[in-house]
Design a protein around this nucleic acid. Structure first.
Lengths: 340, 340
DNA sequence: TTGAAAGCGATACCAT
DNA sequence: ATGGTATCGCTTTCAA
């Protein structure tokens, strides 16, 4: 109001206006570290309001050495699975007065390198890798003092602690649930994993079948998306002895699987039952609504962020239990009015 | 390697190591504004590498007066509709070497206030409001010099330019497509809008029915989510003369509508056809795949960001054309193998 | 082509 | 309780 449109207001303007020193302005703004007479404080506050003063965040960050920024790297955001994590991270971050600097790699090596570098160059206080990096050196990018964690991973990369869902447990829950429904031919549709990574989902599915002495159908490995699920189901159904139940390794895959089933006029769950892993929101409104094993997104994000601020725990692995969410696609009940 | 673990490396360390002044280091790092002898440059570059030097972004931002941060405010990220925008914004921002500071309001007044303030206090260069703020004063938060735009809005708020899809056009395309299929009883399911906002979607739907002299069914206004669509469809179907086609005002609503239809064992599109608005990715794999009118997310985000960096155009409104994406739910064809 | 040095805006110690 | 001031790391003008 009072000031012109030229130069941003600084604390010096405020100090002059309130007739105090810049130090006092700082004490008022930050509520310390020295006390200020309530009368003086009032004057300063008023000057701040009148001048429309906003502390310069860069100057503050330079002085304090902390930006309050958390870099978050995800492969994609159009996949509801990662949206769930981002949402949970956002909540946990806000609770700590931090903001999230979001980066999407699009699973492209070039983009990946670019965004990680940019995060570091923007001075993030910490990093959350909610992704699998193609160039593994990038996990260590920037100042080694920047704390970092892996989210949605069960194996640490070097010193970087990992926070992941207990996928083996989840896959077991899903498969056993299908067994409980009396199925004997239970297929698996999932995406590929790097050679050096154990596939907990597939292994657990296989283990359950072996324990129950059920036929071990060769798994359909396609891609980690809806289309992958679609392809995978086709492959399974084209076999001489198709499965009567399918365990889909992710919700997106399950959506694709069900689409393929519908196209062939197969009834779900009567002809083929489906259970998936992840527990994203969209599964409640698929047709039929999907029985899925849910990851505790909130708890995982919270723990990851807590680890970032707490004392470092190099190379740690934290596994989170998964919970079966029973709906209609497994055959437990008809799709009812009440969802969720 | 050489240095201890104590203090971050600064340009002074690099200068000392390379036997040059700090100015030269700066010239090398920024490729200007003064030329540097290639030999000297090499020495500096080497010192940088050896010391593992990273310029302090806060200091740089303080000096240059720009953080390279774009604040993005969305109501929620679990809704694929907003993920589409965030994804498009991310691409456009990276093209300009900017990073996005993501904030989610959860449509809560308190959170909304908190996140907008935090964005401003973090020194964003510009703001994208991809949301409707409860507290409209917040649109003006912070330094008035921070450029800002409205994305997904067709009406400017004060000086803030708006970039939105031509919803009237979209709704018209959808409704007329249903009319083209021979439907005469076409219902509408949508969410509520603030009293002072025109509902372009509903108005256009109504206009088309009037033009064709078709019966005007009372619209079902519920909530802007899957459950809202579910409820809305129930309401429509419970009437003495239910519609044979439904225009859903958003993809999420359409998903809910179709779920309700399935529950009543109504065939889509044979018994009731459905067309929706938005064109998010999940519609391709719903059952049946959804015919929808798509917003050009990429173009909208690109234009919004361009407006942020270009000369200000106060109070401008930019409307983007929508395109019909024909799939199976309207009755055009059976759900085929090939999905978009 | 290179160096010295004056800020950018805020913090907080050391005086008073 | 308050004021003066060195400092954070970098950019860039001005001089050499």
């Amino acid at each position: 109001m009072t000031s012109g449109e030229s130069r941003p207001t600084t604390r010096a303007d405020v100090a002059r206006r309130a007739g105090v020193s810049t130090a006092v302005v700082s004490y008022v703004v930050n509520d310390g570290p020295r006390p200020v007479a309530s009368q003086t404080r009032r004057r300063v506050l008023e000057a701040i309001r009148e001048l429309g003063y906003h502390p310069n965040p860069s100057a503050r960050a330079l002085k304090t050495g902390s930006t309050g920024l958390i870099g978050v790297v995800v492969p994609e955001i159009l996949n509801a699975y990662f949206s769930e994590f981002v949402d949970a991270i956002d909540v946990a971050a806000r609770r700590r007065a931090s903001s999230i600097l979001l980066s999407i790699t699009h699973e492209d090596a070039g983009t990946e390198k670019e965004v990680v570098a940019s995060l570091v160059n923007r001075g993030v206080d910490s990093l959350i890798f909610n992704c699998r990096l193609v160039n593994t050196e990038l996990y260590q990018a920037g100042d080694p003092r920047i704390p970092r964690v892996l989210l949605d991973r069960s194996t640490p990369v070097g010193e970087i602690p990992a926070f992941g869902a207990d996928l083996a447990m989840g896959a077991r829950l899903a498969t056993e649930h299908l067994v409980g429904h009396g199925h004997t031919r239970i297929g698996y549709v999932g995406g590929p994993l790097p050679d050096d990574h154990a596939d907990f989902r597939r292994d657990a599915w296989q283990t359950v079948l072996e324990e129950r002495e059920l036929p071990l159908l060769s798994p359909a490995i396609t891609a980690w998306d809806r289309n992958g699920g679609h392809q995978g189901a086709q492959e399974l159904l084209d076999r001489p002895e198709p499965p009567t139940a399918i365990f889909a390794a992710s919700d997106q895959i399950a959506i694709g699987v069900m689409h393929a089933l519908h196209q062939r006029r197969l009834r779900i769950p009567d002809d083929v039952a489906v259970v998936s892993l992840d527990g994203t929101a969209e599964t409640a409104y698929s047709w039929p609504s999907l029985t899925t094993v849910r990851q505790p997104f909130e708890a995982m994000a919270e723990a990851a962020i807590a680890a970032l601020t707490g004392p470092p725990e190099p190379g740690t692995r934290t596994l989170f239990p998964m919970t079966l969410q029973v709906r209609a696609s497994c055959g437990c009940h008809q799709d009812q009015e009440s969802l969720e």
